[in-house]
Nucleic acid binder design. Structure first.
Lengths: 201, 201
DNA sequence: CTCACTATATACCGCTCGGTATGAAAATGG
DNA sequence: CCATTTTCATACCGAGCGGTATATAGTGAG
């Protein structure tokens, strides 16, 4: 990227990255439809025309916030795949989910889960975007578990696709519990219970 | 109830039960905040003043719809507790959840999950209501699993509270997957995977 | 300094939201 | 037949929504 984008005209008075980060926090707690422009602009410290000029509109802002979320918050997903065993992959995923959900002031679900469940009226492109992103991460987990199967790392009779779906369901269910006011201790216990259930050979 | 409520004045031209059932469908697909009065009244076949006169306001209508939902859709939860073994209880719960989620046109999560995750702005009383109802059903499951432990129906080292939290998380995660466009077959597979994970002694 | 250009702040737009005032319509009691 | 009571349908209300027109302020180029 050009650090010197040859500014002509009045310079911008805010940092787009910081503003986007603030917008992400609002979207994360309110959801896409629940986040109003008034709340967004106040959190970002800018006015509506500035937001429009810099990010396009509310929907484009959300997509960019989703980019940031995936880059900053969901990176643990990719690194978890590098664990040596399927069991270790699962535990890294569960603990990473736990960390995200208990990182803020009070526990809350993954932004993707919130967007999927909450956006019901319009937001067709929002849902599609989230689903597309999730499909690729789901695929990565399936491939990792298929590798585990090939390596003899999974007990016989355990289907990689089914196991991946199951694990993702637990992670998403953990998000629902977090949204429902579960304490970090309860979520931690849920991780341990799930790991105790993990198939052994 | 009095079947003859001594009508005086112009009789009502719609059936409140049917109207409430229609409202429930709208709330279930749109969520509380996503359901507009326009969509509600159209689905219910009545006008806004009629709705207001009969049900109070949107919030009161939602609480009554939640009553109906619990009575009609979540009755399987109570009957599941009567199964003889903890394993059978779990399977009945999972299959009951599956039936609800795949009952409509396309899969969707439990109304409680939708309400919890989606309602972010106002809706304080909505969340409280849902949480209160869920707390009692959670408690019933915990007590059932405690009975199972006392009966030697659970393997050693399995905590009833932790197991109940885990099972509920899977059910809720299943709802998220349903909202995300999972097919009934995938959800069915998720049930079977979960049952395959269920602890054995 | 002047001009072209860009970001800023204010005020505003059309629309939809949940909720209601109002008057006509349909029933019962006298 | 009339008064009373309750429901129905239309039209309306203030507020908040996402988005924007407009005018001003701050920058580099010439």
């Amino acid at each position: 990227m050009a650090a010197e984008p040859v500014t002509r005209g009045r310079p911008r008075e805010f940092d787009p990255e910081e503003a986007l980060s603030a917008a992400l926090q609002v979207f994360w707690t309110r959801g896409y439809e629940g986040a109003s422009l008034a709340e967004l602009t106040e959190a970002m410290g800018i006015t509506k025309p500035s937001l429009y000029a810099c990010f396009g509109n509310k929907e484009a802002l959300f997509h960019k916030a989703l980019d940031l979320y995936e880059r900053d918050k969901l990176c643990y997903m990719r690194s978890a795949m590098e664990e040596p065993t399927a069991r270790a992959v699962a535990e890294r995923l569960l603990r990473g989910t736990l960390n995200i959900q208990t990182g803020g002031n009070d526990p809350r679900a993954c932004l993707g889960v919130i967007s999927l469940v909450a956006c019901t009226t319009q937001a067709d492109s929002i849902k599609t975007d989230v689903l597309t992103r999730r499909a690729s991460s789901d695929k990565a987990l399936v491939e990792r578990l298929e590798r585990a199967e090939a390596e003899g790392d999974l007990p016989a009779g355990v289907e990689p696709v089914a196991l991946a779906t199951y694990l993702l369901a637990v992670m998403q269910g953990m998000g629902v519990q977090a949204s429902g006011g579960a304490t970090p201790e309860q979520l931690e216990q849920l991780v341990e219970t799930t790991m105790a259930m993990w198939p052994t050979n």
